[in-house]
Amino acid sequence: MRKERKNAVGQIIVDTASRLFYKQGYGNTGINQIVHESGVVKSSLYTSFRSKEDILMAYLENTGFVVDEALKGAADRFADPKEKVLAVFDYLIELVQEKEYYGCNFLNIISEIPIEDERVRTQIKKQKNGVRRLFSQILGPIGKEDLADEIYILFEGALIGNKVHNEIWPITIARNIAGKLLN
């Protein structure tokens, strides 16, 4: 029972921190704000996590799983590899139009952390390599897995372009280029 309570408290902390990290940034979110908004006492936070970075790691792991499943789910709606790839871009088009969309969780964090923070960078690379792997798996059956990294760069560029311009056109252009590459 005690372990379940600890896990529940930890999940409350991660859920609260996830919302705050995503909306206002990792650097702009303090431990005291996480404690206050989660409703847990500071000692409970430190029983579950040794540091703010440990909370960040849980956020990145949880978010990585959710994002990977969403991208795979978008692709899995189709049988044709080209349509699968385009469906991933269509998913982005829908995602960026959501009211509470503040950019790619991972690109937001990577832009905030020092280059020396290898632990966080490794976790973000793991998620991004999962996206690369998804494109490679989609394109493997038609012998075009060599295009996976090109499609991945379009995907990442579309996310950055959307963040900079706060418009859909970078994603639609990347989608169109991906379609041409796969013809």
Score class of each variant (00 low, 15 high):
Q11R: 14
R5T: 15
N28A: 15
S18I: 08
I34T: 04
G39F: 05
V14Q: 06
H36M: 12
V40S: 05
K3C: 00
I13V: 15
A17N: 03
V14N: 00
V14E: 06
S18H: 06
E37Q: 13
G39C: 02
G10P: 02
K23M: 13
T29P: 08
Y26F: 15
G25Y: 06
Y22S: 07
F21W: 07
Y22D: 06
R2A: 15
S43N: 13
R5H: 13
T16P: 01
I13Y: 02
I34Q: 02
R5V: 15
S43Q: 13
H36T: 12
A17M: 02
G39M: 00
R19M: 10
V14D: 01
V41C: 09
E37G: 01
I34F: 03
Q24W: 02
A8N: 08
E37P: 00
A8W: 06
V40R: 06
Y22L: 08
N7H: 11
N32A: 15
Q24C: 08
Q33N: 04
I31K: 05
A17R: 01
F21S: 06
K6S: 10
V41M: 10
S43M: 10
L20T: 04
F21E: 02
R2N: 13
S38D: 03
V41E: 11
Y22T: 06
M1K: 11
L20N: 05
K42L: 09
G25M: 09
V14A: 10
I13D: 05
I34K: 00
R2H: 12
G30V: 04
G25A: 09
V40D: 05
S38M: 01
F21T: 05
E37I: 02
V35E: 07
I34M: 01
N28R: 15
I31R: 06
E37V: 00
Q11H: 11
Q24M: 10
F21I: 08
D15F: 00
S43A: 14
I31L: 11
I34H: 01
I31T: 11
I34V: 13
V35K: 10
K23I: 14
K6L: 11
Q33D: 10
A8D: 12
T29I: 08
S18E: 10
Q24T: 12
D15M: 04
N32T: 15
Q33M: 12
K42Q: 14
K42C: 07
L20C: 04
N32K: 15
H36V: 08
G30H: 08
H36D: 14
T16Y: 00
E4C: 00
D15A: 07
G25K: 07
G30C: 05
I13G: 07
N28M: 10
R19Q: 13
K23D: 12
S43E: 13
S43T: 14
V40I: 14
V35L: 06
A17F: 03
N28F: 12
N28I: 06
I34P: 03
R19H: 13
Q24I: 14
S38G: 14
N28K: 15
S18N: 07
G30D: 11
I13P: 09
R5Q: 14
K3R: 12
N28H: 13
G30R: 11
F21D: 04
L20F: 04
G10E: 02
T29S: 08
E4V: 09
